[in-house]
Amino acid sequence: MNRWASVAVALLCAVLALALAWAMWDLPPAPVALPAQVAGSLAISGVEHPVTAVLLNFRGYDTLLEVGVLLIALLGMLAAGATPERMTALPPDPVLEGLARLLAPLMVLVAGYLLWAGAFRPGGAFQAAAVLAAAGVLLRLAGPVTAWTRPGRVLRLALAAGFVVFLAVAVLGLAQGAMLEYPRAWAGSLILAVEAGLTVSLGLTLAGLFLAGPEIPRGGPRT
């Protein structure tokens, strides 16, 4: 790009930053107090942590669609096809692999804790899924897990399970009158079930974003 055009773009973006700052400075206070509304309805949400209540109950629709978006992104990546591996082979590293094998079960344990903790303190399906995905990436880099060129049937089912469970619970609410409206007495258990499904599926999907690639060629046969 031309030098003057670049300077013009930079200046325009600086003006935008100042305009944004001015707008935010002058913004009147919000007319609705959302934190108070959330706190007022927390007792009927089925969980005690407000963020989890918003995610899985009050604004469950957003979360449902977001899980769908994530699944579609992974499908897009698998559809784009694996590019041939260009990087040079890594020699197998027994120390790294041993460490990964040791850490992975602990990370699954941490994910389980985060899932359980989400009901009453910071944590929940998303953070648990992130830890699961990190375990997947670690295992892939260390060697034991291979890339997905063609996910098998079980894996595909596990990827879709979270979205399907969430959708099923959402549709069950239709019998009550509205989509995603949980029966009061069952809200806590239903949210935990949805979160458990989401943790597995989101964890696999996030790991899949890294794993849906080419094989890392190995230097020599592994023993």
Binding site: P35, L55, F58, R59, E66, L206, L209
Partner: peptide
């Protein structure tokens, strides 16, 4: 908590 939950989903969508 409302925008916090929105941003939480936003981060996951951003990585996807």
């Amino acid at each position: 908590p409302v925008p916090q939950a929105m941003v939480l989903t936003g981060i996951v969508v951003a990585v996807a």
